[in-house]
Design a protein around this nucleic acid. Structure first.
Lengths: 155, 155
DNA sequence: TATTGTTATACTCTATAACTATA
DNA sequence: TATAGTTATAGAGTATAACAATA
């Protein structure tokens, strides 16, 4: 468990002692996040989206009409970063900045028809991807993992 | 579960529908990794280290004498990035580049006495930190979570 | 006076290519 | 010809401050 055979592109495999790392929640979380989150990222790149844009798009789809600042707060980000994210989603014709009916400073962010179609497609894709990447776990283990992570995150 | 009250610094709390995100392993993994991995990062910053440097330092401590390329492969990184990591660890007097006895192109990376002391200290710190950040889980849940993550990662 | 969206800046992380010295 | 370490460069992501329009 503390040794891992690493396949090396050139030269022989290297056996590395990982000491306490495999017992650390942070270490295993980061490996898992990189693996699960990263490989779906490659799929998204083929569609011209990043992980962050995907998350924001889903959020907009579920909460149309919010101003940019509220979206930024919802993902623990800030207004400045949200500008470019919305810029790109708007350039891809997935969302629209509409005039807020109540505040002429702010934009109400809406999903376009293409954005709605993209969200529906990505929901299917992401579930398929998770089934594939987590096929080492049976349904009960997958559910337990998700439950424990949610318990940790929401504490 | 799909609603989360977000405390906002200025203005009222915002209630956001998160749609499918909370059911996604990738989403929960990323939140948990950011939470666990990130808060220990602040502690490390006080010691002049980054997360990446911490991981490499532990690896070097457990595998003294390896060349930089092997270390890079062990963390899924590359030679170029490892140069600056070793530079910084060496500037902090935690590791040393020694001449390889068998290959004059390569360095054997060794831990200094200060590096060994730092590793021992950080091993204590990181366990304390994990106990604190995961106190929403009892011992059995913590163990189950770690086991499931390892199963996922090693598949 | 405070807030929204925006721009500019800077700093880190990451990925790639190219150089040098050795093998 | 290939490899180890290094350097340079460019692209993302992130954090902060400041500005104009509006509240």
């Amino acid at each position: 468990m503390n040794d891992e055979a690493l396949s090396v592109e050139t030269g022989p495999a290297v056996s590395i002692k990982r000491d306490i790392l495999p017992e650390l929640l942070g270490y295993q979380l980061r490996r898992a996040a990189t693996r699960v989150y990263g490989s779906f990222g490659e799929h998204l790149r083929g569609l011209g989206l990043t992980q962050g844009q995907f998350g924001v798009l889903v959020l907009i789809g579920a909460n149309p009409g919010l101003p940019q600042t509220a979206l930024a707060q919802a993902i623990g980000s800030n207004r400045s970063l949200m500008v470019r994210t919305i810029d790109r989603l708007e350039a891809a014709d997935l969302v629209r900045r509409e005039a807020s009916p109540t505040d002429r400073r702010s934009h109400a962010i809406m999903v376009t028809d293409a954005g709605r179609a993209m969200i529906d497609r990505l929901k299917t894709d992401v579930r398929q991807h998770e089934d594939r990447v987590a096929r080492a776990l049976d349904a009960e283990e997958f559910d337990t993992l998700l439950t424990l992570l949610a318990k940790l995150n929401d504490s």
